[in-house]
Design a binder for these strands. Structure first.
Lengths: 106, 106
DNA sequence: TATATTTGCAATCAATTGGTTTCGTAATTA
DNA sequence: TAATTACGAAACCAATTGATTGCAAATATA
């Protein structure tokens, strides 16, 4: 079973959960009210997000408060950064080619 | 069939394809050489990425060069930015609360 | 103590996914 | 023209996904 941040944010409901919890911790019931999905469906998403270590549980009596581990989100940022650098480098190479063409025409 | 950038980057092979194409355009066969998967499997990923408009095809004789539409990647960045702002705002609110507590104790 | 509330967990199901194999077609090359 | 190459598309399959239903455990309330 693959369980990484990218698979976690692939689902729109899970992305919404992340945004909601970015504002503040919430219980499953409170979260479920924001969606059309059932409480169990939301709970399943919470389980997946917890397994990815994007969420942490905090038991308070019979309630469980889910809150964000914002650090995990950096994995996405890291990959994006890697992509951006590779893409930028491509232009560098293009620049080199253009420079070479330029000096050839001289 | 859901077809968005988030679902596209959920698969590790597709993420690798994106990174490879960030450096420069490639044909399906050239791409497939970088993976253990078959040419057809890679081709299927290419179709998905093209349907998401992350990739564009450019026919050259019997070869098809796939290259990146880097703009689409901004969708991920936008969502990340939205998340970061919500998360930052949370700290702002916390700051406000702390400020209020501070003035109460005066 | 009896009842209600909050929650996780297992079983089940239809839909989707990622992969393979096979086929057809268009562009090269011999 | 015949063989080869590069590719997409369709059919198929096992594994995974997202959702539902039913249940049990723990805590709170009457």
């Amino acid at each position: 079973m693959r369980r990484d941040v990218f698979q976690a944010i692939a689902d729109p409901t899970r992305r919404a959960i992340i945004l909601l919890l970015a504002v503040g911790a919430m219980t499953p019931n409170a979260l479920a009210e924001h969606f059309n999905s059932s409480r169990q469906a939301v709970s399943k998403h919470l389980r997946i997000l917890t397994e990815c270590e994007i969420l942490k549980q905090e038991q308070q009596g019979r309630e469980i408060h889910y809150h964000l581990n914002a650090d995990k989100m950096k994995d996405i940022e890291k990959w994006l950064e890697q992509f951006k650098q590779l893409f930028a480098k491509r232009f560098d190479q293009l620049d080199t080619v253009l420079e070479q063409l330029k000096s050839k025409n001289k």
